[in-house]
């Protein structure tokens, strides 16, 4: 009785040590007393199948898209998977979006000139979080609710976000959305495998971290029929690096020094 409570408490130490160092499970000395028959080790670990990288990146081959209709399934795949609400009323004001389409002059305002070729001018471009190498949003966040993972993904901890929206001001790409209201009523069909958000927190594309963890590529990549490549930017052999080697690519607002990890082949 008493022992069980105490052991539970002390386990945390072990848990955390494991989590941080990844070392072998730590024995809980107290737990051991009088429970010799029981295995006292436990372990927290990554899935064996999990995809890993040093810096995940994405290359979008805009040549493979013709119209907004081509982008629709990608966006739908992402938004339905992640329970992103469709807020119709006040579309612009309270909109939540992880990945969306916009015109060249908006996605690339610093590149757009007066005279653009016909195709580029009318082609819808995908916009999403760039998972910058040098993310201003992470710098801005006062609680580490937005943080950069070891694999380069800029992630949101919805449990910790206080909703100050400093990250939204900091993001030069407009990639972040805020839950101005409870999103649930605006989700057509909930995916129980992924949490919804609550009002008052910021959200954005997570490069499908939950899918990478089980060995799957991001939903949009999967739905793109090969138009989007995804891989480790630091691995010279990776598909994305191959593409970058062989194609001219552009990135959004490169001049700001944020080093976006999303590249566009035009």
């Amino acid at each position: 009785m008493m022992q069980s409570s105490r052991r539970n408490f002390l386990k945390i130490a072990g848990l955390s040590a494991v989590g941080i160092s990844g070392a072998k499970p730590v024995l809980d000395a107290f737990a051991a007393e009088g429970h010799g028959d029981e295995r006292t080790e436990f372990e927290i670990r990554k899935n064996e199948k999990a995809l890993t990288a040093q810096q995940w990146g994405m290359v979008i081959d805009t040549r493979k898209f013709e119209s907004a209709a081509d982008l629709e399934p990608l966006i739908e795949a992402c938004h339905s998977l992640h329970n992103v609400p469709h807020i119709d009323e006040n579309k612009v004001r309270h909109e939540v979006k992880w990945i969306w389409e916009d015109e060249y002059k908006h996605v690339f305002p610093t590149l757009a000139g007066k005279f653009v070729d016909e195709r580029t001018e009318h082609l819808p471009f995908l916009a999403l979080c760039n998972h910058c190498e040098n993310p201003p949003c992470v710098r801005a966040c006062p609680t580490k609710a937005t943080f950069k993972r070891e694999d380069g993904i800029v992630l949101m901890d919805f449990h910790r976000c206080i909703g100050c929206r400093f990250c939204m001001a900091a993001c030069p790409y407009g990639s972040r959305s805020f839950n101005f209201k409870d999103p649930r009523p605006f989700i057509k069909e909930r995916n129980p495998e992924f949490p919804t958000r609550m009002k008052g927190v910021v959200e954005k594309c997570n490069f499908c971290a939950e899918r990478l963890a089980v060995g799957k590529k991001p939903a949009c990549v999967e739905a793109s029929n090969g138009a989007i490549a995804f891989g480790d930017m630091n691995d010279p052999e990776s598909e994305v690096r191959e593409l970058l080697k062989s194609n001219y690519t552009i990135r959004r607002k490169k001049g700001l020094g944020t080093e976006p990890a999303v590249y566009y082949i035009v």
Binding site: I12, A13, S16, A17, I20, H159, R160
Partner: peptide, 9 residues
Amino acid sequence: VEFMTDFLQ
């Protein structure tokens, strides 16, 4: 009040 350290949850 939510935090977690090596010793305390």
